[in-house]
Design a protein around this nucleic acid. Structure first.
Lengths: 161, 161
DNA sequence: AGTATACCCCGGTTCCCCACTGGGGTTTGC
DNA sequence: GCAAACCCCAGTGGGGAACCGGGGTATACT
């Protein structure tokens, strides 16, 4: 999350091994907002999301453009425009979102000298690490996050009473 | 892995979500070499490891210093010096190695404005992602990598015949 | 005692990418 | 015609990754 002389939103965003980038976090936050708004059928605007989630609006614009190009959201230009989810929240896995935002690196370089057998072993294990991480992301959808968000807010309301 | 106009050692080193950094890969490769050498009780030198695994020796020196300070390896200075594992290979998990190399980020910032409930939900899920990845790393030791390396070399020998 | 070896420490470089920010064009609704 | 709101492109500053270099110190050997 943002490290540039501003308060971090997440104390966990930079820990060992598996980092949650600002991009991914902002994208998930934005999509939770879009999920909450999905039933209304009305577009949600960048400035609404950025205000609600403390995300820089111009940066969010870039992230939403990426999501739009990947078909996860669609946009409505012009006055009263904004963004909407393309699919229902329960049909969008976190893996869909994060892999879209983080992107894929290029294919193996054909002219590369062969790796040592140790390097192949390390890569094999790292493949398992990646698969384990991706399995968790594939298990959850935006709906799950929305449900957890709603449950948490319910508890907050009860504590407030 | 090294990206600077040189051939990458690993085509998988920069894929989405869970990246294997050069640091971690080099450290694991070096420790596999130290594991293979462990039974001899003799130190292994930086230039031997760097030659075998195509790792820049000055960079490897830094990584080994980190490992030494963390107590995973010990060094012998002077002529015929080098590095040795402190513990047996089957007692060193990959998690030990990678968390040492990648390090921990600082503690939560006390004066941070509280995160939104959505942010807390996202962080919760990412915690599960991290735990899943770390569980895989905790499951394997250097001995496992060495065994896989040996098995692979055995197959390569058979194919060569 | 001298010398070579090999680790130890500190500092530096280059490049890339992250996390933004800005300007202006185009579409849409009123 | 105008304001709202998305669209596209470019740019910036800082930090860190992936290195490299110089010189000090401990150790083994002759």
């Amino acid at each position: 999350m943002g490290n540039r002389g501003i308060l971090r939103l997440s104390p966990f965003s930079r820990t060992c091994i598996v980092d949650l980038s600002c991009k991914s976090e902002y994208a998930l936050l934005a999509l939770i907002e879009l999920s909450a708004h999905h039933a209304s059928g009305e577009p949600l605007q960048i400035r609404q999301i950025s205000a609600q989630q403390s995300i820089p609006d111009r940066y969010l614009e870039q992230l939403l453009a990426t999501l739009r190009r990947a078909g996860l959201v669609k946009s409505q230009r012009g006055a009263r425009g904004g963004y909407l989810l393309v699919r229902e929240p329960w049909k969008v896995s976190l893996y869909d979102v994060v892999s879209c935002i983080e992107g894929f690196e290029g294919q193996p370089d054909g002219d590369k000298s062969p790796a040592t057998s140790e390097a192949l072993v390390v890569q094999g294990v790292w493949g398992e690490v990646r698969q384990a991480a991706e399995a968790v992301l594939q298990r959850y959808t935006l709906q799950d996050l929305l449900d957890q968000r709603n449950a948490k807010q319910q508890i907050d309301i009860m504590y407030y009473i």
